[in-house]
């Protein structure tokens, strides 16, 4: 927890565009959660508005729609961002799940249960971050589609509206709990970052945290900085590495089926760390 010492080096983790996308999503999602759950509010809460109840709930509806449209817009923007821009493509490639993630899950859980000495060295995004990211894609698809259905209720039979309503509330509940229990813990209450991970503001990550949570990327960046990289690799977003990872996995599995040790076994990987 000495992250602000003067001699600490910092790495870029989030670009300005990514930070802007994040903050827009934070604000719109917070508004959506508040105005959405107002519909479920207890009677005494609604009664406490008194004569302003109608006005408050009229505003509630509009704020929910505006925030929903904003969240939709930022999601659409993000699709173009990952398709078109260089940093977006890099982000997307590194977010694609790979066989190593399964190994990370196994090794990290073993570490947390005390069966391993240290955490596995993880890449730019480790499996929990990938899960969170892809659950936003999954969840946003559901809430946007059902949200549009509920907004255009004129055009739908009641049967579909009921399904849409159930999905909208269900996915919102899932997302809200995931944010409160998962994300808020990870960025506020996790001992590494308590009381707050400031990466979403300044985009920087300290060397200590980088080493701790993204060991593989840290080593790669270090090798580039020191000029000791073998064949000028990019620190992140390399499609070849993703393909390699899958190829290694398949080769390894095929070799195991034939009874030979593979090229990229768990043992060789962990020994790097010593």
């Amino acid at each position: 927890m000495n992250s602000h010492a003067e001699n600490t080096r910092y790495f870029v983790r989030l670009t300005p565009s990514q930070r802007l996308q994040h903050i827009i999503l934070v604000v719109s999602t917070s508004l959506l959660i508040i105005t959405g759950y107002m519909v479920q509010a207890e009677a005494f809460v609604i009664q406490s508005f008194g004569n302003y109840g109608d006005t408050v709930f009229w505003l509630r509806g509009w704020i929910h729609r505006i925030a929903g449209a904003t969240a939709t817009a930022i999601c659409v923007y993000h699709i173009f961002y990952v398709l078109v821009s260089k940093e977006g493509q890099s982000w997307f490639i590194d977010m694609i799940p790979r066989p190593r993630d399964l190994l990370d899950v196994w090794q990290n859980i073993s570490y947390m249960l005390g069966f391993r000495e240290r955490r596995p060295k993880m890449d730019r995004f480790f499996y929990l971050e990938k899960l969170e990211y892809w659950s936003v894609w999954f969840g946003m698809t559901i809430v946007i589609v059902t949200g549009i259905m509920l907004w255009t209720e004129f055009y739908w039979p009641e049967f579909f509206l009921r399904i849409a309503s159930a999905f909208h509330l269900g996915e919102a509940t899932l997302a809200t709990l995931a944010i409160i229990v998962g994300h808020v813990y990870a960025v506020h209450y996790n001992a590494h970052v308590y009381p707050m991970n400031t990466t979403f503001i300044d985009g920087m990550i300290s060397e200590h945290l980088m080493k701790e949570e993204h060991g593989m990327q840290y080593e790669r960046e270090l090798a580039i900085m020191n000029g000791t990289a073998e064949q000028a690799p990019t620190p992140h977003g390399e499609l070849a590495r993703l393909i390699d990872d899958y190829r290694n996995c398949i080769t390894y599995l095929l070799a195991r089926m034939k009874g030979k040790p593979g090229p990229d076994t768990e043992e060789t990987r962990v020994d790097d760390d010593a």
Binding site: Q40, G170, T176, L177, I180, V181
Partner: peptide, 10 residues
């Protein structure tokens, strides 16, 4: 409390 309430609501 919010989380518990949401679970309760749902």
């Amino acid at each position: 409390m919010v989380a518990v309430w949401i679970v309760w609501v749902y």
